[in-house]
Computed example of a mutant assay.
Amino acid sequence: MTPLRKRYPRALRTLTVGLVLAVAALVVPDSAVKSTEIELVKVHQASGVDLSPDVVWILAVGSDARPGEDMTHTRGDALQLIGMNTRTGAAAAIGVPRDSWVDIPGHGHDKINASLYYGGPELLGQTVGNLVGIQPDYVFVTRFKYFIAMVRDIGGIEVDNPIAFDDTYLKPRGFRAGRIHLGGYDAMAFSRIRHNLIRGDFDRSANQQRVLRGIQAKVRARSHERGFMERGVLSVMAHLHTGLPPAELFRLGQAMAQVDPHKITTCVVQGGIGNIGGASVVLPFTSQARMFGDEARADATLEHC
Rank of each mutant, 00 (worst) to 15 (best):
K171L: 06
S191G: 13
R199D: 13
G214E: 13
D137K: 04
F228G: 05
M71D: 05
N196T: 07
T301Q: 15
Q45N: 09
A300L: 00
F147G: 07
P261Q: 09
K218W: 08
G253L: 06
I215V: 13
G89E: 07
D30I: 07
A279P: 03
G120C: 01
L170Q: 09
L123G: 00
A46H: 02
R10G: 06
M291C: 07
V236N: 01
A25K: 07
T86Q: 11
D50L: 10
D201C: 02
A24T: 09
H107D: 00
P29G: 04
E37D: 06
A238R: 13
G278L: 05
H44A: 14
D299K: 11
P29N: 07
Q80V: 10
L244M: 12
R194G: 01
P29V: 01
H44K: 13
I163Q: 15
A32W: 09
G129H: 00
R220P: 02
L252Y: 08
S235L: 12
I104C: 09
G200P: 04
I154D: 04
V236D: 06
Q216H: 15
D103Y: 15
V211E: 08
V236T: 12
Q209F: 10
A22P: 02
V49G: 04
V33C: 02
D70R: 03
A92V: 05
V55N: 08
I82R: 01
P105M: 12
D99G: 05
Q80G: 07
P105R: 08
R199S: 11
G76A: 15
P67K: 05
D137Q: 14
D160I: 01
G48N: 11
Y146H: 11
A114S: 13
P9G: 07
R98T: 10
L4D: 09
I58A: 07
R173A: 13
S115G: 11
A300I: 01
